[in-house]
């Protein structure tokens, strides 16, 4: 999986490409750790090319959401594929993470 992070003035844009699974969840965690601190907590994650997520991936989205919420920021996930969205729906994550 490839992760691209672009810090803009008003928000950070993250682009995910590929599968988020057990083999690369710890790499993704390292990638997003810098986003869990600082005073620029608005984050948009482009999920157009995110093919899959396991509970390991969900765990990291929840950590990020908790971090952003605690700093009064916004996390938005965009263009999620229906199969991946279903995993967020089943686990109730659609209720706590903003998916557009």
């Amino acid at each position: 999986m490839d992760v691209t992070i672009n810090k803009e003035e008003s928000k950070t844009i993250v682009v995910l490409n590929g599968r988020l699974d057990t083999t690369n969840a710890s790499k993704f965690q390292q990638d997003i750790e810098p986003l869990m601190e600082g005073d620029n907590p608005d984050i948009e994650i482009d999920c157009t090319n995110m093919e899959y997520t396991s509970s390991q991936g969900l765990r990291l989205f929840l950590m990020l959401q908790k971090s952003v919420t605690s700093r009064a920021g916004n996390l938005i996930l965009t263009n999620m594929k229906p199969q991946v969205k279903e995993v967020f729906d089943i686990t109730g994550f659609s209720n706590i993470i903003n998916i557009l």
Binding site: R59, L62, T91
Partner: peptide, 12 residues
């Protein structure tokens, strides 16, 4: 139904 602050990380 728990809000984000109370959702546990794991167990899914």
């Amino acid at each position: 139904s728990l809000p984000v602050e109370q959702r546990e990380i794991g167990g899914l």
